[in-house]
Design a binder for these strands. Structure first.
Length: 271
DNA sequence: ATGACAATCAGAGATTGA
């Protein structure tokens, strides 16, 4: 991780990503984690709710501005922010026929403004097949947006559930995932293509240890056996990476009452 | 080899997820 200390004049900004697997099902676990972790910004995926049904008061009462991009039953993303948000946009550009709610952007107005993009990348199983084709085409659109963000030369990040296991070290049993849409070579190649444009993958910039996961299946005691995968990521532009001071996974959230199958991942930025 | 688990919509069981 960057050794340079945070600039003393700037307050740390904690930005988290969390696939909550349904806001209705996480109506207690999410507020409990927010109260404990105190992120300034939380990017949420799989709210599985239309905008009108999202319980925004729970979060507004805690001082968060709430911006949602929902749909009925599946998918859906949101941003909670204690700092003002500007220029909120919804939907990943590049395909007007795509009706799935998987992308939301806003500028967080801290001392240093940071453009944040919350994403829920398609799962893609079964692969090969139309769902996998959709995943790869979505990643191509993501690459286009990533290039646009880089060209601004400003602090920006893209974070969320990428549904990508970047490397074998990021799975407890990589061989079990070889043919899966989350780990197929084309998936990893598409992810690398984006990272290699010039992004910093925040977790691996801070931590090279194995057995660091952000998802465990609900079945067969996967969490208890730490049979997990790391699929929730932060990609930072160079100007954002300059602000990075820490990135951690709140694995403890998986041991709580009625947990999501994902846990929060967060960065600290000197912004 | 299969199912195991959870959530949603709907109001049973199919679909989706990873």
């Amino acid at each position: 991780m960057p050794r340079r200390p945070a600039r003393a004049t700037l307050t740390p900004m904690k930005i988290a990503t969390f696939n909550i697997n349904g806001i209705k099902a996480r109506i207690n676990a999410l507020p409990d984690w927010l109260d404990e972790a105190q992120p300034d910004v939380a990017l949420l995926q799989e709210i599985k709710s239309v905008d009108e049904a999202f319980p925004r008061e729970i979060f507004e009462d805690r001082g968060y501005q709430v911006e949602t991009h929902g749909q009925k039953g599946f998918n859906g993303v949101a941003i909670l922010s204690k700092l003002p948000l500007e220029d909120v946009t919804r939907g990943l550009p590049g395909d007007d026929t795509d009706e799935q709610a998987r992308w939301i952007e806003a500028t967080v107005m801290g001392e240093v403004p940071v453009r944040v993009c919350g994403l829920y990348l398609p799962n893609g199983n079964p692969a090969p097949g139309p769902k996998y084709d959709y995943k790869l085409s979505w990643m191509k659109r993501l690459e286009t947006r990533a290039n646009q963000l880089l060209s601004l030369e400003e602090p920006a990040l893209m974070a969320g559930d990428y549904n990508v296991i970047p490397s074998a070290i990021d799975a407890a049993r990589p061989d079990a995932w070889r043919d899966d849409a989350l780990f197929r070579p084309e998936t990893r190649e598409a992810f690398r293509r984006i990272v290699n444009l010039g992004f910093t993958e925040a977790f691996r910039a801070c931590n090279q240890l194995p057995e660091q996961y952000s998802f465990w299946d609900y079945q067969a005691g996967a969490f208890q056996r730490n049979d997990g995968i790391r699929i929730d990521h932060f990609l930072l532009t160079p100007q954002c990476a300059d602000l990075l001071t820490d990135c951690q996974i709140d694995a403890f959230a998986r041991a709580r009452e009625k947990p999501s199958d994902h846990v929060p991942v967060w960065v600290d930025l000197a912004a």
